[in-house]
Each structure stands twice: as structure tokens, then as C-alpha cells.
Simulated scan of single mutants.
Amino acid sequence: MHICNSESEDIDSIFELYKLATDFQKTKSAVPWPMFDRKLIQQEIAENRQYKIVVDNEIACVWAITESDAQIWEKRNEDPAVYIHRIATSPNFRGRNLVREIVHWSKAYAKQHHKKYVRMDTVGENMGLIRYYKKCGFDFLGLSKLKDTSQLPAHYSNATVCLFQMSL
């Protein structure tokens, strides 16, 4: 298993993982992801902010990061943090604790880039995800009603999000 940046030739695989994740979200009564703009993923790849876990030459999981997330984190966005978005795991690799691998990687990334926090959010109050992310080492900071979602993907519109943070 290794973690590396996603590449342009991974885009179709990334979108397939997003589709599978969205289908899975629907079975769990979670807020499903919308179809993401291909340009967004291309930009993340170009900016080296889209990552993947590769196991036996197969993409097992993907996610993106950013170092600013003001519309979700508001005033807290001033804190030095790395933000994790859109973790999507292949069904072939569910149950292998890949989020823990992402957490381990994220902590090292954050320290290397002089950040104090690793943060993430989920849309809606998904108790299963809250428990899981807490097991992975995140503190659940509670629910937050988003005020301005104009620059966020569609599933954030008029949403309440769960906020998670890990201090380094």
C-alpha cells in the first residue's frame, strides 16, 4: 500500500469511486454527494491536492485536501489547519481502515506544513460516521448550520454539517 498524488489519468477512476460512494451513501440514508465538476478534480490534481491510496496497483481510496475552508469553518479558518474532503473508498477495500491511513498521512502532512489541526466535515447528522471518525482520532466538535454556501458543492446548500478536528 502506498499514498501518492492522483494523476490526470486517474480522473475516470476517481469519478467511479465518487459514484460508488454516492450509491453507498444512499443506502445509509446519508446526504448523497452531487456529481462533482470535472474541472474541480482536474484543478486539485494540478495543484497536488488530490491523493490516492494504491494497493496492488489498484486505487483503493481517494481524497482531496485544502489549507483553507472558510465557508465551512468560518472564524476557525484562521487557524493553521489542513482540511480533508471527499474520502471515497472502493468497495473492494472497505473494512481495511484506510481512513486511519489517511489520518496518519494527514498528521505527517500537517506537521510538515506547520499546521496545528487536521479537520474534516460531513453533511448531515450521520451517527455512524460520527462514531467512526471519533474512533479514528477526531474530536467531534458538533453541528454547524452553514451560512454562505455559494462557493461549495451543491450538497452543502442549506446544510448542517458535522465538524471534526484533530489537534497535533
Rank of each mutant, 00 (worst) to 15 (best):
N5I: 11
E9F: 15
F15T: 04
E16N: 11
K19T: 08
K19C: 15
D23W: 02
D23G: 00
V31T: 10
P34T: 11
M35P: 12
M35W: 14
L40E: 11
E47P: 14
N48I: 14
R49M: 02
Q50L: 00
Y51C: 12
V55Y: 00
D56W: 05
N57F: 12
I59R: 03
A60V: 15
V62I: 10
V62D: 05
T66L: 02
Q71W: 08
D79H: 14
P80M: 00
P80K: 00
V82Y: 13
I84D: 09
I87H: 07
T89C: 14
N92E: 01
F93C: 06
G95D: 00
E101Q: 12
K107N: 08
H113R: 12
K115I: 06
Y117N: 04
Y117C: 01
T122P: 13
V123D: 02
V123T: 01
M127Y: 13
L129A: 00
L129R: 00
R131P: 09
Y133M: 03
K135C: 14
C136L: 07
F138K: 09
D139P: 10
L141W: 10
L141A: 12
S144W: 11
S144C: 15
K145D: 04
S150C: 13
Y156M: 01
S157W: 10
V161Y: 01
Q165M: 07
M166L: 05
